[in-house]
Amino acid sequence: MIEFEQAGFSYGDHAILRDMSLTLAPGSFQFLVGPSGAGKTTFLRLCYLDLAATTGEVRHFGRSIAPSERDAIADLRRRVGVVHQDCQFLDHLPISENIALPLTVNGIDPREREEDLRALLQWVDLTARVDAAPPLLSGGERQRAAVARAVILSPDVILADEPTGNLDWDMAQRVLTLLVELNRMGKTVLIATHDLNLIRAAKARVQARVLRIAQGRVQLAGADL
């Protein structure tokens, strides 16, 4: 699905990631761990082509996409749902419209998919908050809304950057449950986190691979996790 071949990324002369060769296989569930500043977010950005590899190659769904191919990148992002730690909503729209935005930008009238939208809101337990503006939601509600927005187009891959970073343990479990359910539906899930408890909780429910970034390289983590 997403393949890295000797791929690396540098800011100027400073190499953040180098010589990465790995594949995010369809239907897999993976964690990406590493200390702050190790390059977890950079790795995710390479996955959804917010950044382009400066060395080697990254292929998405079998194709290498150049940074200048703006439409191809937009199309890719319809197949790769992203959940950010800060969620990134349009604050002037109610949360239901934010969740439906991927439909809107695809030219689909959300009214045509009202039932799906309602089911999705129910799934993330936000039915009572549909008209609330994003700044009025709690951290957990925002993260669940971000998950809903990321999956509304039924993408093949879900990328989550510290999705539980600002949440208490109960709320983190709820978000994890959503991501595990998506994986059971056949979606590829990659979560960047430094929360080892979350990884342990996930491993109890799903077969998860843990990737560690250290000194700019990505490697499989040991049994300590």
């Binding site: 937009a74 992002r77 909503f89 930008v105």
Partner: peptide, 11 residues
């Protein structure tokens, strides 16, 4: 940035 993130084309 948000629109691009969710797959909006520049057009």
């Amino acid at each position: 940035q948000t629109l691009r993130l969710i797959g909006a084309r520049d057009s």
